[in-house]
Design a binder for these strands. Structure first.
Lengths: 307, 307
DNA sequence: GCCGAGCCGAAAATATCTTTCAGTAGTGAC
DNA sequence: GTCACTACTGAAAGATATTTTCGGCTCGGC
């Protein structure tokens, strides 16, 4: 009895930083799979394929099932954002329970050359929906909120993106301009760098790259970073080189790609969702000025529509 | 007392000894509560009252929380039908996950100024998923197939779009170029019209406009139509003015919009799905030349990625 | 007040998870 | 083609959590 008073109430405490994922696990597996090693991928695959089964296994059991070692299992759990295997297992049990009570995830096959057009539509739509769900689930809201704050108070904002990501950069820029912010999109690497030099503390630089290793957008971000601007990376590979110059990292889902389904397709969908979230977040923060600006731009366009 | 123990063993033994309780835990607690000792009741109470919280605790933590000992916690777990505390904890995590997923549908409401950022993400993702589903369901595959055929055999293709739709036009153009087709995107209405004059039968002109009444893209489409080119409209308003000059109409979903959620946001998602479908369709038709072109462009970009 | 039955918790024993460390395969440079 | 290097991997040691054991304790009956 007496020991109770002496004992410390807080036994769990500990874990600071980011909260793990409850049901966003499948999403996280898909998102992080590319940055995993072979052994870890085997573990991740087993986990994603049979959450209920894996939840019943100990580290040793799962290691044997996947033909790897305990260390690899723990490493995988860490990569997925859990402090250790114990917590991954807990999340796994939760996921299994949800799946059992809810819906079963449909698995789509790849697009074939001879697929009828109706199948193409269905598969593409499903894939992009999946990308949206995964991206939403995997998005770090703390990072997002920080990026929104930075944007809302920035003197000016530069957005870097080339190729398909360049269009996303332009999309974000268009939106920010509509609510009265100063934003520029750069697709030309040289101009991007020369403009980045002008940035200083309080400004914001955003790099958009699916691979996380596109030199043409990393370079201007590095310059902006070194000039003291707040830097944001929107990438599918949070472990990529771009992240070393990013104050805030917003991760998009990495759906599998194939010959007829280039990566640019689904990555763009995820990137646009992130961009939309940024925009709405900023619009909320600056509502007083954003709302009238939005209405004004809407009315200004009205006369360009034929009846 | 021994009868209780025996009957309990039979009860769980009826399920083969292995499967305990997934979600029927609260019920089991109430049922078995009378046959519990005081300490065990405290444990059972804590478990039933806050499954999620207890799932985060170790056996020691739960013992301290309830002012009992580890042994008592384990004994309680056994009484509830689990082999030990470890398994009770797993079931607890599952229960918590189920409860949490139960209160999900707060998404259907509009985005408010004071919505937390996490809600914004969920709502936007849900909305865009909805747009994808609606667009896929409403897409006329016959029209789509006809448009694909026209594109695959076209001498050249012009795509018109202004504002947000201009980015979609560029996206389509980028993709078509990657598989060796001749395509141009036009955001400048004047240039669009002057280029449209060059089109003739066998060429394709595509107008992208959500409202279906954007004069700046209707005008070049009209010119192309009159020059004998095959014309395609990607619009959210198939009854709009743009359709009168379109041989093939591809309809995108029109999701509701609001102050903080401009139409450009979800319309863009639907337009991009249509564009992707066009691209994949054309890539299928021209597979012999498209596949090597895709690989080539992929490899050509590889060296622009940092390691 | 004494006795017995069974509840309870501290600590030992065991299982499980985590970390460390060294071997190995893959990779790029020369 | 060879070499050096990086980084993945698994075995075993180390740390934690769980389970078992065992003796003290309370409570009711006589």
């Amino acid at each position: 009895m007496k020991e109770i008073f002496a004992s410390d109430r807080d036994g769990s405490g500990g874990a600071g930083g980011t909260p793990p994922a409850p049901a966003a696990l499948a999403a996280k597996v898909r998102t992080l799979a590319p940055s995993m090693t072979r052994s870890m991928q085997r573990v991740a695959e087993a986990v994603a394929g049979d959450p209920a089964g894996c939840a019943a296994l100990t580290v040793t059991g799962l290691a044997e099932l996947t033909g790897t070692s305990e260390a690899t299992v723990v490493r995988t759990a860490r990569l997925l954002g859990y402090p250790g295997y114990r917590d991954l297992r807990l999340a796994l049990a939760g996921l299994a329970a949800q799946q059992q009570s809810g819906r079963a995830p449909a698995i789509t096959t790849d697009i074939a050359v001879d697929d009828p057009i109706a199948d193409v539509v269905a598969k593409l739509a499903y894939d992009e929906q999946q990308t949206l769900a995964d991206t939403a689930a995997g998005l770090d809201t703390a990072q997002l909120a920080a990026a929104v704050t930075a944007l809302a108070t920035a003197r000016r904002t530069d957005v870097y993106g080339v190729g398909a990501s360049g269009l996303v950069a332009q999309d974000l820029t268009q939106k920010l301009l509509r609510i009265g912010l100063v934003a520029h999109a750069h697709s030309d690497p040289h101009l991007a760098v020369t403009n980045a030099v002008q940035l200083r503390a309080g400004d914001v630089a955003i790099a958009i790259t699916h691979s996380g290793s596109t030199g043409d957008v990393i370079e201007p971000l590095r310059v902006a970073f070194e000039r003291g601007a707040t830097t944001v990376a929107i990438t599918g590979r949070p472990d990529g080189p771009v992240s070393q110059y990013a104050d805030h990292i917003l991760t998009t889902s990495t759906a599998r790609e194939s010959e007829l389904r280039p990566a640019a397709m689904s990555s763009r969908t995820g990137q646009l969702l992130v961009v939309d979230c940024l925009f709405v977040g900023v619009a909320q923060r600056t509502y007083e000025s954003a709302a009238p600006a939005l209405s004004a731009s809407y009315e200004a366009l009205a006369h360009r529509h034929r009846s």
